[in-house]
Design a binder for these strands. Structure first.
Lengths: 110, 110
DNA sequence: CCCGTACTTTGCCATACAGCTATATAGCTG
DNA sequence: CAGCTATATAGCTGTATGGCAAAGTACGGG
């Protein structure tokens, strides 16, 4: 699953936000968070973590039975970059568009 | 459907990219693009446009039978902002994380 | 070495969603 | 106004995905 799909789910976004906030978080804490906010069970949370892992958004390392998760900024940068690029266009031509809309109102061409 | 879900689909992303590139594009052109790139039919493309509209990513105006679509930068900015915020954290603490990983290797605690 | 803790995996169901064809709507054009 | 063009809607279907409970795996402690 790609990054766009991975962050399409609010549960997974909330997990990403927690990781961004705390840096390192165990699977258990993330599951608890998901339980509180969305009322989902631990195995479901684990499934979401798997999706995040496969999308490359997070990595996990074992600490005894605990799995410690952390963000990988790469895919998020890609996402931010894509979204930013789509709007950068408008910065350049926004006034042109506005002029066009104005012209539409008065109907005259200068 | 929210912005995250809307851009989760590659067909819709390609439409957004085209709109970012051209500014104003008719439904027909967008359908043609989707047909070429993804082999999908006109009604399916129309459905995708509806999703983009409902997510607030695009607006459309009528020009005779044509529907002219254009991007609304607002939701895209939100998206870019969200993704950027999740990574901004790392900028601040990245070196701390790296130190932590180094310590893990040698196993000693200072 | 067996039990509890911490997760992941498996197998199952329901719903959401993308795709299709066929049809409806709307506006130009002859 | 008939018919073509442009687009949207309706109705249907297959598959993907999210949710659950139950079972499997792995580790540390008594």
């Amino acid at each position: 699953m790609d990054v766009f799909q991975a962050v399409a789910d609010p549960v997974r976004r909330s997990m990403v936000e927690r990781l961004a906030d705390r840096g390192e978080v165990t699977a258990g804490e993330l599951a608890e968070l998901a339980a509180e906010r969305f009322g989902i069970r631990q195995p479901t949370a684990s499934k979401h973590l798997k999706v995040l892992r496969e999308a490359g958004l997070v990595t996990s390392t074992a600490d005894a039975q605990r799995r410690v998760y952390r963000l990988d900024p790469g895919p998020l940068d890609e996402l931010a970059g894509w979204a930013a690029r789509q709007t950068r266009f408008w910065a350049g031509r926004l006034d042109a568009l506005e002029r066009h809309l104005e012209n539409d109102h008065d109907g005259s061409t200068s």
